[in-house]
């Protein structure tokens, strides 16, 4: 059994030593080892004419005589590796197999990136954005809140959903790279033509429409499907806390259905213009096939000077 191990290659045995079994006066020729003959496939000259028992004894002798160090054994292994050349087919199929394994590992890494790393990064960015917003409000040098004064990607408010333990900064625009992928909630600010432009919380009436990630990148809207009618949604701005109450939900709609963010969205149950909030996110989870919509209406507006609203205190 030891004959299969290359470190006992008798080619390297320096000299039969005295602790052999007795018949060491005649060193074995290299081809004598059955391992080598097996490896090289070519038939070895049958110098050992005895039976299996004799061959085993010979192997045992050479094994006991192998006194080379580790480096020597490694060199022997390398030499043996060179001796058995792989054919082109073996090399090619090994390469293909290794490439497939690599591809699988990369895909697993991508899943880890999506489900874990984007959240780490986005929560760090969003937390920093929320803190800097609150700092600037406290110092009193917050952005001018007159309509249209916010540049795209600029944070201007903080969204709280106490029942879901959500706190996320709201930034202007729904650009993925600048806003949503940083863990922030985006406010539909519209394009140059004015389409998809929605109101601000402090507007006399209108629909304050927001978009946020359901999965990955901080996932602020992960559990919006668990909101119940009556749950509070609070928007904190430089001057006031605006408290909304969730009223209804549209579980699934087409991504092209932009009517859901109209001032009076059809299907929301609202009849007359008012001060509403709309949250849009993707559904089912981990896909972008449909959109889930949550609507709410404003129930309270509280100046900052009066402190936090009840929804954030309890």
């Amino acid at each position: 059994m030891t004959a299969l191990r290359p470190e006992q290659d008798p080619l390297l045995v320096p000299k039969p030593t005295s602790y052999g079994t007795g018949s060491v006066s005649q060193p074995l020729p290299p081809e004598d080892d059955p391992t080598i003959s097996l490896r090289r496939v070519e038939p070895a000259p049958p110098l050992v004419t005895g039976g299996r028992a004799e061959r085993r004894r010979a192997a045992g002798r050479s094994a006991s005589a192998a006194s080379g160090g580790r480096a020597e054994r490694r060199r022997a292994a390398q030499r043996a590796a060179r001796a058995r050349r792989d054919s082109v087919g073996v090399v090619a199929s090994r390469l293909v197999g290794e490439l497939f394994i690599t591809l699988g590992v990369v895909m697993l890494l991508f899943v880890a990136y999506q489900l874990w790393w984007t959240n780490v990064i986005a929560q760090r960015q969003a937390g920093g954005a929320a803190d800097s917003l609150q700092n600037s409000w406290e110092k009193g040098d917050g952005p001018d809140r007159s309509a249209g004064a916010f540049s795209p990607g600029q944070g201007f408010a903080i969204l709280y959903i106490p029942s879901l333990d959500v706190k996320a900064p709201i930034a202007q625009g729904v650009n993925k790279h600048k806003v949503l992928d940083r863990g922030m909630v985006g406010h539909y600010e519209g394009d140059g033509a004015g389409a998809l432009k929605t109101a601000m919380p402090w507007d006399k009436q209108g629909n304050f429409a927001l978009a946020g990630h359901r999965n990955t990148h901080g996932e602020p809207f992960r559990y919006v499907n668990r909101l119940q009618p009556g749950d509070k949604i609070v928007v904190e701005t430089k001057d006031a806390f605006y408290t909304y109450e969730m009223t209804s939900r549209l579980d699934q709609t087409s991504p092209a259905n932009i009517r859901v963010i109209q001032p009076v969205p059809p299907g929301s149950g609202f009849r007359a213009p008012g001060r509403y909030i709309t949250l849009t996110t993707c559904t089912p989870e981990f896909t972008s096939t449909y959109r889930m919509i949550v609507w709410g209406k404003m129930v309270d507006e509280r100046p900052r000077s009066k402190g936090k609203p009840d929804a954030l205190v309890n």
Binding site: V106, L109, F110, Y113, Q114, W117, V174, K176, H177, L180, G186, Y188, D191, A193, A195, L196, A211, G212, H213, R214, N215, T216, H217, F221, T253, P255, A256, N257, I258, V260, I261, T280, T281, C282, F286, T287, S288, R291, I293
Partner: peptide, 27 residues
């Protein structure tokens, strides 16, 4: 991969669109 390749590949994959009217002209 995490720093350069995945952020580049992510928008090419259809996982994470959350806005209505994505890529379509509003009217």
């Amino acid at each position: 991969l995490f720093q350069y390749v995945f952020p580049w590949a992510e928008p090419l994959l259809p996982f994470n669109d959350v806005t209505v009217d994505n890529g379509l002209p509003a009217g």
